[in-house]
Design a binder for these strands. Structure first.
Lengths: 235, 235
DNA sequence: CGGTAGATTGAATAGTATCAAAATCAGTGG
DNA sequence: CCACTGATTTTGATACTATTCAATCTACCG
């Protein structure tokens, strides 16, 4: 089967994805052939917690919100998934359920594989498994960091850290400073840091009056990163 | 190379370990041949955070304490590792550093492989990688659970959950109830739940006066699990 | 130009941390 | 066997952070 121009473009798209590093073009072609492309409008639910994990995704562009809802009804925002990252890794193993909810924040495209297809690919190309392990190690590290912050830091400190992470992940330089390039409500920040939207609001208003940030409806711009870093590091 | 009686016993010891499920005896023999056995006295430091990850372990018996110390000097107790579980999974990848501290709580035996040896084994037996992935998925789930508890639950609730988990992991039936079968101070419980030893002490004394638990110096017995479960579930 | 989701603000309160001090317990060695 | 030592635990008083609830305000959308 000869590779067409369109195929080549698709294969190129797979190259920068961390999950597929170290694989040759033949492997990438095979991997791509098994994938289906999904286009997701903002607020589309990709999967829900406790449902059978049947599809494994890699996000091509856009942004996905990972949440978990507790028995008491609290929502915790666990992370955002960005371009190039995998999504629904549980679906790489058979017979699992998704532990979380995934929802597109903005217009998002993702490649999708069935559990069966990804299982076969991993058996054929163990390098994918090795890469997955590496990514899981990263994720474990991030989660441990979150646990530690939640266990030892004050709310203000946690909000500062969350914002600094957000501008790392989705920061866009503007004339004034760095803007978080996605809709982000006070409620989102509260779910991200384990507090209430009221406390987030008060904190942001204070920072705004100090000239550290500029806030708007679902929008946030960091004007002076350094004092924020100081707060994140515990004054 | 014929397998001796002693070798056979060692290979049997590897069989129940989740990391090695699905491997045949020949593979297990090879795996065992590469391992070194470590015996660790209580309080022995196995590795420290930020040091190069050079050794991958599987705990045969005993118990290991995983902690992380923050820049501000707070210690967070992330988990206990029990018999059959892997330890230092970061060492499966090359060029990583341990993200945490590991210390034997009681007399402990563990098998150890060098990064190089475990890398070779994983290349030769991809099943080990698949098993590792499964264990990492478990670990990610547990950490997410911890984050959610820290983000949404009150201290009392978190302490109840921690204790219930401990009697799952290290519970020993006695005439009165179930005892946590390892030394466990108020400080440990505080580091496990993100609070202070004072609050843990007050909580336990209250529960003791209600007849739910019986506490002693580094010792804890659950007399009535059901009310504790009710507290863990938020009354 | 209303309607509505998002954001702010105030007041009251609850939950925990913090600090200081005292009490208890397990060993240890005289 | 007992007093001594150090670690662990308990308890009290106080300060403070953050939540909760209610009310109001604001920006954006159709």
């Amino acid at each position: 089967m000869p590779t067409t121009v369109a195929d080549r473009a698709h294969i190129e798209a797979l190259k920068p994805i961390e999950l597929f590093t170290g694989l040759d073009e033949k492997a990438l072609a095979r991997i791509h052939a098994d994938a289906r492309l999904w286009a997701l409008r903002p607020s589309t639910v990709i999967f829900r917690q406790r449902r059978p994990a049947q599809t494994f995704y890699v996000v091509l562009d856009g942004r996905v919100r990972i949440t978990e809802i507790t028995a008491e009804g609290h929502t915790v925002l666990l992370r955002f998934i960005e371009a190039g990252q995998m999504l629904g890794a549980m679906a790489a193993l058979e017979g699992m359920t998704y532990p979380v909810n995934a929802e597109a924040v903005v217009q998002t495209r993702a490649l999708a594989w069935s559990t069966r297809a990804m299982g076969t690919l991993m058996d054929r190309y163990p390098r994918i498994m090795k890469n997955t392990m590496g990514l899981m190690v990263q994720r474990i590290g991030e989660l441990q960091q979150r646990c530690i912050e939640l266990a030892t830091q004050r709310v203000e400190q946690r909000i500062a850290r969350a914002i600094l992470r957000l501008i790392q992940q989705a920061g866009q330089r503007t004339a004034e400073g760095v803007t978080v390039n996605m809709p982000l409500s006070r409620q989102d920040l509260a779910e991200l840091t384990g507090t209430t939207l009221y406390t987030v609001s008060r904190t942001l208003t204070r920072w705004q009056s100090q000239g550290l940030v500029k806030t708007g409806r679902q929008r946030l711009t960091v004007l002076k990163p350094h004092p924020l870093v100081a707060i994140a590091d515990g004054l």
